[in-house]
Amino acid sequence: MIEPTILSRPTYGTLEPRPGRAHLLIADDAGSAAIVDLFARAPADFHESATILSVTKDLSGDEAAALHRLSPATLTACPDMPAMLNTLAGLLAEAGMGVQIYLAGTEPLIGQAMRVVIEAGIDHSAIATEHRGSLARRVQCVHCKGFMDEVTTQPVTCAHCGLSLFVRDHYSRRLAAFQGVCINAEDQSEIVPAEEVFR
């Protein structure tokens, strides 16, 4: 469970079926169970108007099979995040007002999918989210502007510019990333050991 810290740090809910004629559900492997749970609470015909888009490490794995058993009208599994985000943008270009968007899984999945939905013209407050899985963060280095996916340590060494970054709770929806700020900018001789904290 992600606890609220500062007001820019996103928090997540539990997916519940919403009124609407079409439902677009996006999940990674960790989030697929949340989709299964949502279907269990939804009306019996929910699957007929549901489109599921997943990003999975294993196209023939258990998570993919579980989503398949839900019998959604459309099920698209993508092998990586960029492929999924591209597919999502394509689906949104065809969608109309009234479609309900559900995002489930790790924060990098939720954040990056949300960014694509916002760019398609939907207010972020209308997007349903549920966090499942690891607490690994997507981080932007505020100095070199490079991104790192799956950051688990505090601090983290920037993969691009090499600075030691303190990972703040300050989060940008537009960048789908937490902010990384040099932890020893004042005195670079101060070395702060990294600890695994975002698991």
């Binding site: 919403r18 009124p19 609407g20 004629r21 079409a22 007002m97 009234g98 479609v99 309900q100 939907i122 207010d123 407050s125 209308a126």
Partner: peptide, 10 residues
Amino acid sequence: AAALGWPARH
């Protein structure tokens, strides 16, 4: 609008 799934902020 609410019943048809329009977000409140729209």
